[in-house]
Design a protein around this nucleic acid. Structure first.
Lengths: 192, 192
DNA sequence: CGCGACGTTGATTTGCCTCAACGATTGTGG
DNA sequence: CCACAATCGTTGAGGCAAATCAACGTCGCG
């Protein structure tokens, strides 16, 4: 249960056994069933969440009622509205389980306490925030300068196997195109 | 020269006179002439920059040779490749002056030193990073879910008066459309 | 079995691009 | 200070990428 998290952290920082014990105490396990919500738009996000099993989507609904998917999260990814978590502002995202999920969560006091006991975690979360920022910048560029075909191919490279787990119309909502059009693109590329 | 920076900081954190003195010592003034570059793609960004006068653009060039503008920066804004600055990775951006500029800059050692002497600056820069992240997320949504008309109207609300300072084709590169098409949009909305 | 959720396909429309030509400004060197 | 060249913005015609609307097929599931 915690081993995936420890492996994940170890990619960026090195941990002693003692620190691993502190870490496992700081993160609380949680289960979520398919179609349950981790967060609703307008709520304040009180936890950051690491996914150890399952798949979720973070999406917003604009004033025209259209859903746009900010992020898919599968095993070994983080999910949450970081801005809301850090500032206490109401979240602009919904986060919903697309499969039954196993999660590990830490809340704000838990994180502050962890920073005191394992200071290198500050470094880790700064890296996470930076990566989220970069990923977002890259998506701006890709949305502006690539065709739907190119974005689709980049998507299946970034999220391999996710096509088998997530319905097509959700992927379309991530790519910013209609399900019909994604269906045609997929047909064109089937068998690569 | 420094008063704009102090006013800017004071919006987020409160400063004593002593801290203001430390701050003005930490930031170094710099001038840049129109068409000069603050940063080239591939370089490591060694400074974060606050604009006290003038206007710049941060843009990237993709493999098709197209320019895309990540950000305009005018008085009272920050500009730089934060990712490169924080990680030491080569920058993916060019930053170029669109007018003669007056800037205030701080480098990495200067910032670390400032954090020690004025710890509340940590809080300030965390807020700046978060805001940059949020702005980027909003641009993803707007690029995916809005028409060019809507993005144009949102743009002139976000950057009032900038139309008088920046050529149309640069604004088109920011919005992700062709100059010709922006010209038609503008015609449609002239006189609001 | 029958219903709802999901994916596909066709016909049509529209938002935006491309290419090309032409004014209006700006600026620069002689 | 003028002449000429860049630079920039506008306009028109035509084309393509992607949306829309509508119909139908298929599967999983209560």
């Amino acid at each position: 249960m915690y081993t995936l998290l420890i492996q994940h952290l170890s990619k960026h920082i090195s941990l002693t056994n003692e620190e691993i014990i502190l870490l496992t105490a700081a993160f609380k396990p949680r289960r979520l069933k398919k179609k349950e919500f981790l967060l609703h738009q307008g709520e304040v996000s009180r936890q950051e969440t690491f996914v150890t099993q399952g798949c979720l989507r973070a999406f917003s609904v604009n004033d025209k009622g259209e859903e746009h998917i900010a992020q898919f999260a599968v095993e070994d990814w983080w999910v949450g509205d970081m801005y809301s978590f850090l500032t206490g502002a109401p979240s602009r995202l919904y986060i919903e389980a697309l499969e039954d999920c196993q999660l590990l969560q830490i809340d704000r006091p838990g994180l502050e306490d962890l920073y005191l006991r394992v200071p290198k975690m500050e470094r880790f979360f700064r890296i996470i925030i930076q990566n989220a920022f970069i990923a977002s910048q890259n998506r701006v560029l890709s949305a502006m300068s690539q065709t739907a075909d190119e974005r689709y191919l980049a998507f299946i490279r970034k999220y391999p196997n996710i096509e088998q787990r997530v319905p097509l119309y959700q992927i379309a909502a991530y790519l910013g195109i209609t399900p019909e059009f994604l269906s045609r693109i997929r047909k064109k590329f089937q068998g690569k």
